[in-house]
Design a protein around this nucleic acid. Structure first.
Length: 261
DNA sequence: ATTGTGGCCTGCCCGC
DNA sequence: TGCGGGCAGGCCACAA
């Protein structure tokens, strides 16, 4: 499912849209337009305009529009970006049907040169928006400094995993990467966020950065070492202990009781 | 303000 | 064979 690595791939893919003029806006499902802006307002803002840049903050993809407006795309869990027929190397998302039925194309832009940008999303968990509130997101996980992580985790009794998933504190971490990172960092997901000492924050920061880069290199958030064992009865790939399963931070969580403390 | 919960949405897989 | 229920999880509205 699209977490930071997938959205970064989509950002690179969306570079292909930069500099091209939009001639048509196809809103296949009005529910896909988020943020309270009427679909026709979004369409009017994009029609005839040209994109000037492709950016990413956390899991939010932003296309800057000449004139100052911004076009946002969130992929939810099953969203895919297709530009000129290419998915940019992301072929099959977990939990997303690999069949590309046209009915799941929720939103599309047609360019003056005939090309198209399509957002394909079977489950409608993503969405597009005009002028998304980027400031509501915390610092991006990929460039997060140790000091920023310390701030994000400090003074809270909430589970450290919940804090990592809170996009307002740190942007870009989803359920799979949170579990993978905590597993690699030998840290129990339900540890109180504010209880981490400076050395633990440093360790978590180092492991998070390394994990993100490694998953990007491997091809996505589902390529982690914990992933194959992340099911009922699964065993820790490191020490063979049976993994625990519980809800932490509102998400299904797997962790190793033997080495995560 | 902070934190937790339910709902959205569909496909898949399990057990009966 | 068909069907119901549980589950997957990003994000938002809403409640406490």
């Amino acid at each position: 499912m699209p977490e930071l690595p997938e959205v970064e791939s989509y950002r690179a893919l969306a570079e292909r849209a930069v500099g091209r003029r939009v001639t048509r806006v196809e809103i296949r499902d009005p529910r896909y337009v988020r943020g309270g802006v009427p679909p026709r307002v979004l369409a009017a803002a994009l029609r005839g305009s040209t994109f000037t840049a492709s950016r990413r903050r956390g899991k939010l993809l932003v296309l800057d529009v000449a004139g100052g407006r911004r076009f946002g795309i969130r992929f939810g869990m099953t969203g895919r970006l297709v530009v000129d027929g290419s998915s940019g190397g992301i072929d099959a998302l977990l939990y997303s049907s690999t069949r590309g039925w046209d009915g799941w194309d929720r939103f599309a832009l047609r360019f003056a040169d005939g090309g198209r940008l399509v957002v394909h999303d079977p489950r409608l968990l993503g969405g597009v928006s005009l002028d998304p509130d980027e400031e509501a997101l915390g610092p991006d996980a990929l460039t997060l400094t140790r000091a920023e992580l310390a701030v994000a985790l400090a003074t809270s009794a909430v589970a450290v995993k919940a804090r990592l998933l809170d996009q307002a504190r740190v942007a870009g971490i989803g359920n799979l990467i949170a579990d993978e990172t905590l597993w690699r960092a030998s840290m129990a997901p339900q540890r109180r966020s504010g209880s981490l000492d400076p050395a633990e924050v440093g360790r978590l920061h180092r492991v998070l950065r390394r994990t993100l880069r490694e998953l990007m290199r491997r091809g996505g958030s589902h390529t982690g070492d914990l992933m194959p064992a992340r099911h009922r009865g699964g065993r820790c790939p490191r020490d063979g202990a049976e993994l625990r399963r519980a809800t932490v931070g509102g998400r299904t969580t797997y962790w190793c009781p033997a080495h995560q403390r």
